[in-house]
Design a protein around this nucleic acid. Structure first.
Length: 208
DNA sequence: ATATCGATTATCT
DNA sequence: GATAATCGATATG
């Protein structure tokens, strides 16, 4: 039985995005407040490196948009993409060095009704559950994550209301594949996923 | 099952 | 002016 979830310490994130990404598989993302408790297991992430990674937002240096990636580790970097979607990252590496991990898919555990409400979708069958948090845009919407609300939020403290936790679960097997949806540095194996998990996001048929 | 397209904005060239 | 770490709707097989 999983233990009570406890927050991951800042030192967990003060490492290379690869190490952090690998170790985040199987951990929990939690949105908690007096009126809300959403939790989901992290089943798919991607590492974005601070240096020598053309696909990373930090590759061209520090800007107002990406400054969280250059700040201290364990904070939320939220960006808005395609005019429609927010995506959640956590900053890695010690302060001053860029790097982050993108959350790509979760397995929802508690608060599924509220997630469906946040997404404006039905929740009648297992197919509906599957679409709650599979994909970076979907999981952000399910957790009510926006740039204005959550960019720069401390993900190591339950007091912040959005945090990452360890409940004792240990991933039996982790797969590593190339990243998805990018056009630069396409071949690099920086996508980490929980093997045999149904909630891993799908490659777009025509995305190449 | 795959393919195409529109949404709609921050950022960069 | 083009592009992007995406998704849902729609059309067609």
């Amino acid at each position: 039985m999983p233990a009570n979830p406890h927050p991951l310490p800042r030192a967990f994130f003060a490492r290379s995005p690869r190490r952090v990404a690998r170790d985040l598989i199987g951990k929990l993302l939690i949105r908690s407040s007096e009126s809300t408790y959403l939790s989901a297991r992290i089943v798919e992430v991607e590492a974005y490196l601070g240096q020598n990674d053309p696909a990373a937002h930090s590759s061209a240096g520090r800007t107002p948009r990406n400054s969280v990636l250059f700040g201290p580790p364990g904070f939320a970097y939220i960006y808005f993409i395609y005019g429609n979607h927010y995506c959640l990252n956590v900053s890695c590496e010690p302060e001053g060095k860029a790097g982050g991990v993108l959350f790509r898919a979760l397995e929802p555990l508690t608060g599924l009704e509220e997630m469906a409400r946040a997404r404006g979708t039905a929740l009648h069958n297992s197919r509906d559950v599957l679409k709650l948090t599979t994909g970076p845009g979907r999981l952000a919407q399910a957790f009510g994550i926006t740039r204005s609300r959550d960019n720069g939020r401390d993900l190591t403290s339950p007091a912040s209301g959005l945090w990452i936790a360890d409940d004792g679960f240990r991933a039996p097997a982790i797969q590593i594949t190339p990243r998805i949806g990018i056009t630069k540095a396409v071949a690099r194996p920086l996508r980490y996923l929980l093997a045999n998990n149904r909630f891993v996001s799908h490659v777009r048929p025509s995305s190449k």
